[in-house]
């Protein structure tokens, strides 16, 4: 299977690991030649995803970056089984999302909390829908609020929280069912730079602690490099995977990693690939 890697597009120094090789163990996501064309209201065909081939291993952190409108959100929805691709093969946790609904948590750009529920009830929503009893639910919600640093905030209304705190609630909600996969669509796009770095560090801890595989769409190159095991660069619409760059920065990565020369080197690589792929 001819896979486009960084080597086809730009010289990559120090990329010994074959790119789309999962970091460890089983594959959580395996998609080959995924295409998706939307049919607009006026009958016009919009080829969003041209050809996406991608693998994500258990516990791996993969970022997707690419020009606006290139089909990143579409790709996430395909993984989530919310959109069925026009062509190609996809397996999530070993099954086609169309047959067996995959287990995942979903985080959007907006926190997307239900304003009539307090924080705890928002975090507990997935459990409620799965029919988990109140007692178990409360215990689990407590654990998660602690995980995202919001213990004691359970009874607050979402609008009493800052944007960053709301997004933490959304992440807690996505993790309540302990999914092996977290799908995030520009989760920190609305946050200020400082809060964003803080959230990046916390998300890294969650990924390491729980071993949850993460696929995150982002527009921030630094964020992608900081968090990821691999950064997947998509070309403009109809998109294909232009490059799949391994990020071999040692973990855990801390505050000092932002602005480090190592991160800068990787970021420049990503930037070079993006320019060649005709994005941004």
């Amino acid at each position: 299977m001819p896979e486009l890697t960084a080597n086809d597009v730009a010289p990559v120094e120090g990329a010994q690991v074959p790119p789309s090789e999962p970091r460890s163990g089983d594959e959580v996501i395996a998609m080959t030649g995924i295409q998706h064309t939307y049919l607009a209201g006026n009958g016009e065909e919009i080829p969003a995803v041209g050809d996406a081939t991608l693998r994500v291993g258990a516990g791996e952190f993969v970022s997707i970056i690419g020009p606006s409108g290139c089909g990143k959100s579409t790709l996430l929805k395909i993984i989530a089984g919310l959109v069925h691709p026009s062509a190609g093969d996809i397996r999530v946790q070993g099954h086609s999302p169309a047959d067996v609904a995959p287990e995942y948590g979903l985080v959007f750009q907006a926190p997307n909390l239900l304003p009539w529920r307090n924080v705890a009830a928002n975090v507990g929503l997935p459990l409620e829908i799965n029919g988990v009893g109140r007692r178990d639910r409360e215990r689990r919600v407590e654990e998660l609020l602690e995980l995202v640093g919001l213990q004691g905030f359970g009874r607050k209304s979402p609008r009493e929280l800052s944007g960053g705190m709301q997004q933490r609630v959304a992440i807690a909600r996505a993790l309540t069912t302990d999914p092996p996969l977290l799908l995030m669509d520009e989760p920190f796009g609305a946050l200020d730079a400082m809060t964003r770095e803080q959230m990046n560090i916390e998300l890294q801890a969650v990924n390491a602690e729980l071993g949850t595989a993460v696929v995150m769409v982002t527009h921030s190159i630094d964020e992608a490099v900081f968090l990821s095991d691999r950064v997947v660069v998509m070309s403009a619409r109809p998109s294909r995977v232009a490059a799949d760059l391994p990020i071999d920065l040692p973990r855990p990565r801390g505050q000092e990693t932002f602005g480090s020369a190592e991160l800068g080197r990787h970021a420049n690589q990503v930037r070079a690939v993006m320019n060649q792929a005709g994005g941004h």
Binding site: A80, L82, A101, Y104, L106, F108, A110, N112, L114, W116, L125, P126, E128, I129
Partner: peptide
């Protein structure tokens, strides 16, 4: 729309989506 997408992602039934999202 994202709230509806959330309910779909949680595999909420029609009744659950109505009671927990639409009605409120």
């Amino acid at each position: 729309r994202d709230a509806l997408l959330l309910m779909r992602s949680l595999r909420a039934s029609r009744t659950q989506t109505f009671l927990k999202l639409k009605l409120p």
